[in-house]
Amino acid sequence: MFIRVKFTKTGAIRYIGHLDVMRYFQKCIRRAEIDVAYTGGFSPHQIMTFASPLSVGLESQAEYMDLKLNSMTSLQDIADALNAVSVPEIRIADVGLLPENAGNAMASVAAADYQIEFRAGKVPACLAAEGSEQSALDPDKCRAVIEKTLGRTEIPYTKVLKKGERILDLRPGILEFRFDEETNSLFLRCDASSAGNIKPIQVLESICAMEGETLAQYALLVTRLEMYTRTAAEEGAEGELIPMIGICEEHLA
């Protein structure tokens, strides 16, 4: 059976790279004595898949990992056992039983939500409140810039690759973009699929470039809030976005 585990990654642990988070969970699962399934051969490894890797330095409220188990007592026991042996910065937020036909976490990511804040002194002028020394957002300026951004038919972004450069169009990947009053930050829902993944920093760099500015280095404080998968497409209509855990018929939270 496959289960899907949703976990947070916060605080100092934001500096742990993706591969090391995988290694962390391999050890965590052994400490928790979870009856995970292994591959065969001389170096058997746990059967696990992670959804879209999180860049180093970002926090997340919703990372996902799929695990193949031989047995378990209950979903709650899995969550409790993992939390008991985990560092405080990584918490198991939810565990669900995956349906037989579900695609794995990596392949089925469609979109992600991000909360975007700025480090003190690094808010771009086009978004910054007057007199805040580029340390606070101005809601009206944010709304105006976002409206302008969403109004564009094309948002070209030059991605630097190992072999030269590639020009992407970010616009189709921006699914929702708004100023969030409650948290006083920007909210971005964007494509996170393997084919069309875009990153918050790319969107903000493009905005700055359009406004004739350059985004300061290490300006963004980004938190991933949720990751989505898409339900099967109906005739003539694209599938619907649901949180990754949502395809589990049974889950805790």
Binding site: G11, A12, I16, D20, Y24, C28, S86, V87
Partner: peptide
């Protein structure tokens, strides 16, 4: 490798 400097290990 910032992980070298942050502590917080299990």
């Amino acid at each position: 490798k910032p992980e070298r400097y942050i502590g917080h290990e299990v």
